[in-house]
């Protein structure tokens, strides 16, 4: 494979430059650059419609790009899609399990799609069922499984051919908190086993917990890149003071807000103030005559990074 990096630099498995996808008149992905290195946990963080799914589809070679360059294992997915897909596992945002087959058959037939030998598939399938705690449902139909089980099965299925890269599109959307944490554990185990993982999410806590590196996407563009820590240090202050005004925030004077902390964001019913020390900022707010219904102080998160960069919240 065409990986020509020098030994000191970690190898890039995926490399995109000026990657663009246009649907009709609208750009779903607009000239983005990123690199995913061997063995890392890489994230695309962004709200709905940011272009995450489209990017994932282009990587898997099921969506021809409009322009830019894209290399996976040093190859162009539009020309070598099949070979590339042979080494990546994909978990779609929407459930794509085969409802006409049983749990175990879903794994068996997927192995065949990857061209594996039947005996090897059977061993691997049982291993994965065990690993994802699905062994006792092996012979059941897929339909009645819970959401969490279906998602685990989707991931197990994507791992049947032991891929080098695992790509997960919003894997925990719609799961209850417990199922979500179970899944996070499983993904971290996989990463420790050496699998490179690419994940999209619109949950900042998920990105913060899991990703070694991530890019923040908004409206088809990448607005920031780095490790969660770097991003917070770079784009957010140490602490955040949130003030709640149920009657709206329009009437508050800009001058007052500027005087409280380093920076501020005005939302419909909240004002979010970035500062070194939250308690002190709260005291200053009261001095300036603000009368919030409630307030809280917390450490900055990726949510604040996103808010700072786009002026909007992630779940808007």
């Amino acid at each position: 494979m065409g990986m020509t990096n020098s030994a000191s630099e970690p190898t890039a498995l995926i490399r995109a430059q000026g990657l663009t996808k246009v649907f009709g008149a609208r750009s779903a992905v607009d000239g983005i650059d990123f690199e995913v290195r061997d063995g890392e946990f890489f994230g695309f963080l962004g709200p709905n419609g940011a272009g995450k799914t489209t990017t994932m589809r282009m990587i898997a070679g099921v969506s021809p790009r409009t322009s830019g360059t894209l290399e996976i294992f040093g190859q162009d997915p539009d020309l070598h899609g099949s070979e590339i897909r042979g080494q990546i596992g994909v978990v779609h945002q929407q459930e794509t399990l085969d409802m006409e087959l049983t749990v175990r058959e879903n794994l068996l037939i997927f192995g065949r799609f990857f061209g594996m030998e039947r005996a090897a598939i059977a061993t691997r399938a049982d291993e994965l069922l065990e690993l994802f705690q699905l062994s006792d449902r092996a012979k059941d139909q897929v339909e009645p499984l819970s959401g969490g089980m279906k998602r685990r099965l989707s991931i197990a299925r994507s791992l049947i051919a032991s891929p080098r890269i695992l790509m997960l599109d919003e894997p925990t959307t719609g799961l209850d908190p417990q199922a979500r944490h179970l899944l996070w554990d499983a993904l971290q185990r996989l990463k420790r086993g050496g699998t490179t993982i690419v994940l999209t999410t619109h949950y900042m806590d998920e990105a913060e917990q899991l990703c070694d590196r991530l890019v923040v996407m908004d409206q088809a563009k990448i607005v920031a890149e780095g490790s969660p820590r770097q991003l917070i240090v770079e784009h957010a202050s140490r602490e955040v003071l949130e003030l709640r005004f149920p009657n709206g925030t329009e009437s508050i004077d800009v001058k007052v807000l500027e005087g409280i902390g380093d920076r501020y964001e005005r939302l419909a019913e909240r004002v979010i103030i970035g500062c070194e020390n939250g308690e002190a900022a709260h005291a200053r707010a009261l001095e300036h005559g603000l009368d919030p219904e409630s307030w809280l102080v917390r450490r900055s998160s990726l949510e604040d990074v996103f808010l700072r960069l786009t002026g909007r919240t992630l779940d808007e």
């Binding site: 899609g81 897909r85 779609h92 409802m99 990857f114």
Partner: peptide
């Protein structure tokens, strides 16, 4: 209705 084809096309099958 089924999303089976999407799943199949994410493998080496074209």
């Amino acid at each position: 209705y089924g999303k089976v084809y999407d799943a199949i096309l994410s493998t080496p099958v074209g």
